[in-house]
Computed example of a mutant assay.
Amino acid sequence: MGERGTRAGTGANAWSRFWNRGSWWKALLAAVAYLALFLGGSRLVGLLWGADVAPNPFADARSVVVALLLPLLIGAVVLLAFVASLRWFPALFGPQPIRGRGWMWIAVVVTLVPIALRLFGTDYGAYAAGVVPLTFVVGLLVGLTEELLTRGIVVKLLRDAGHGEIAVAVVSSALFGLLHASNALGGQSPVLVLTTVLFAFGFGLMMYLVLRVTGSLIWPILIHALTDPTTFLATGGIDVAGTGQESVLNQLAGPFNIVFVVFAVIAICCIRGRVGAPGAATAPRYDGMHAAE
C-alpha cells in the first residue's frame, strides 16, 4: 500500500479503528447494542401507535405494520448506517473470503424444503386483507437485519480477530440464538424461550453454511426472508406451534426445526478452515478502511 496506505491508516477516525480490529467481545457488543436499539424502537413505536394493535400481530394489516414492520425498519436503518459508517459494504456483500465444501449444500436444501411446503400448505384466505403481502415484507426485513448482523457484522469481526471457521460458526449461531431469548420479555414461558433459542441456533448454523457454500451474504438473507413469513403465516403467530387443523404440507414442515438442530451438531464436527490460512481464501478480502485500495 505504501504511502497511500499509511495516510489512510493514520487518517482513520477512532470509530473505524475500533471496529476494524475484530474480536469476539466486539461481536457480542454489536449484537447486544442492536438488540437494545431494536427493543427500544419497538417500545417507542408501541407508545406512539400501538393503542389499537391486536394481541396477535397477524390479525390485521395495521397490527403487522405497527408491531413488526416499523420496528424492523428502524433496525434495518440502524444496521445499514453502521455498515456505511465503516465502509464495510464491499466486505459484507462482496464475495466471501473463504468458500465452503460440497456437503454444505445440504443446508440449502433442508432450509428450502420447509419453505416450499409452507408456501403451498398455508390457507392465505384465512387472513385479513393486506396481512399476507405485509408479512412477506416483514420477512424481507427480518432476513436483512438478522443476517446482516449475525452472518455479516458478527462473522466479519470474528474472522478479523483470527478465529477459525468452527468458532465463527458456533459463536455467530449462538449469538443469533440468544437474540431470540428476548421473547421472554413478551411473557413467553421459559421452556418455550429455551426451545426457541435452541431452534434458532440450529437455523443460524444452517445460514452460516449457506453463506459459506454460496459465497455471498445475499443468499442467507433471501432464504431467511422466506423462512420467517412462511412460518408465521403457516402457524398464525411468532415462535408458536400451529393451532387448529393444519394442512398435511404444514405438518410435514414442522419437524424441520429438529432437523436443523441435528444437522447443526453434525456440521460443527465437519467445519474446517480459517480466513488467511494458505489456500483458504478464494475471493478478495476487504478490511473496511482499505476496501477500495
Rank of each mutant, 00 (worst) to 15 (best):
G215T: 04
W219I: 05
G237F: 08
W219M: 08
A234H: 09
W219N: 02
G215C: 01
I223S: 02
I221M: 08
I238M: 15
V210P: 04
T243S: 15
G237C: 14
Y208I: 11
A241H: 07
I238A: 13
L217W: 06
D239T: 14
L205W: 06
I223H: 04
W219Q: 08
D228W: 07
L222N: 04
T230S: 07
P220Y: 02
F203S: 07
T230Q: 04
L217Q: 03
P220A: 07
T243W: 09
R212M: 07
T227H: 13
T227S: 07
S247H: 13
D239C: 11
H224K: 12
G204Q: 07
F232G: 09
P220L: 10
F232L: 14
T227R: 10
F199A: 15
L198G: 00
L233I: 15
A234E: 13
G236F: 01
A241C: 10
T231F: 13
Y208V: 05
Q245P: 15
D228R: 12
L217P: 00
V240R: 12
L226S: 02
G202C: 05
I223L: 08
V210S: 05
L211N: 06
L233T: 05
A200D: 12
M207E: 10
G202T: 11
T227M: 07
I221Q: 06
G244T: 03
L233A: 02
L211V: 12
G244I: 02
T227Q: 04
L211A: 04
L209C: 03
A200M: 09
I218H: 08
I218V: 11
